[in-house]
Design a protein around this nucleic acid. Structure first.
Lengths: 181, 181
DNA sequence: TATTGTTATACTCTATAACTATA
DNA sequence: TATAGTTATAGAGTATAACAATA
């Protein structure tokens, strides 16, 4: 248990992370916004998945995911195949072009980070990654990830038709409560 | 020096911090957005300052700061006094109402963090704060802060007419390059 | 009746550009 | 001429609500 002052300071530092994220956003290629990049990264690291699953991973409403997915599909970076198990669903997967874009995105962001954090040790970077991962887990993503082993760049698993997550548990998010008229 | 894979993972985790920030944003009172809250927090912790100084601390363009400041001034939470040393400048300072709002904001965000991070130790929270602070410093805010001692809630210094920071150093940001016509 | 996904709309945050008033 | 700050405008990200198709 930490003190009030410490939590306030943490809140400030979290809000300041925005500056770092904006910096990272400035090196993105035309046509590929931060939102698109996030989707590509998740598809790359977690493999094919449904819209709803992706929404949970991003922790945003599905309407947002739908927009991003449409943008990526328009550019040929992902495909949205019908889910044979549920005709309402769509399975997203990277195309070769999408994978190439992801490689380029990774190269750029890793490059910038390597430049900025040149005086950080490997252990320090690892520590920050660990704490951020745990922070996210503490914020309700019991369902997110962090449970799976670090995904190898090997051929991805054959797209689990079932979301890797209980999908209950959550208070709201990922779904606009349908209003009863 | 860390490896490419580690930097990619860090980029992913940084992007995921957005979910935490959105969660924190949901508990804000009406009329006080995250942007407003950030300004109040900085004025509270660093004391009175000029628009340009605040822009550097926020790492956003001054036009953004101007908007936020106008919003806060409209609600009586800050005042923008003329700077006797430079008639172009304005010194921002919290009003009693602004201070009260800041106290409420701190209470709420610290409360949510305390709830979510209940199983974190004091040391872990401190470690995350330290790494985030350093991360920010590594991202070009040689000028930001982190140099000053933790500001006591005591009577604030008489508004340094000179920004606490070199103000050069920076590639761009904080100012839209005036186009030569 | 409930769920998956899409679309329309609105709001926040930010950057760019042009403008005023000082320096 | 350069700087501090303001305002208008545009773009990205997200949430809410309503709708279609399917379960």
């Amino acid at each position: 248990m930490a003190g009030q002052a410490q939590y306030e300071e943490l809140a400030r530092q979290l809000s300041a992370v925005g500056a770092v994220k904006r910096d990272l956003g400035r090196i993105l290629p035309q046509d590929c916004s931060a939102g698109s990049a996030a989707v590509l990264a998740l598809l790359g690291s977690h493999g094919d998945m449904r819209m709803s699953n992706l929404s949970e991973l991003l922790a945003v409403d599905m309407s947002v995911t739908s927009r991003h997915a449409a943008h990526l599909a328009d550019r040929g970076w992902i495909e949205r195949s019908p889910d044979p198990a549920d005709k309402r669903s769509r399975i997203l997967h990277l195309t070769p072009e999408g994978h190439a874009m992801l490689v380029e995105l990774s190269r750029r962001s890793a490059g910038l980070l390597a430049e900025r954090l040149e005086d950080w040790t490997d252990a320090e970077v690892g520590q920050l990654i660990g704490l951020l991962t745990r922070l996210r887990a503490s914020f309700g993503d019991c369902r997110t990830v962090a449970h799976r082993p670090p995904p190898p760049p090997s051929p991805r698993p054959p797209a689990p038709a079932v979301p890797a997550v209980p999908a209950g548990e959550r208070t709201q998010t990922t779904r606009t409560p349908a209003q009863a008229t």
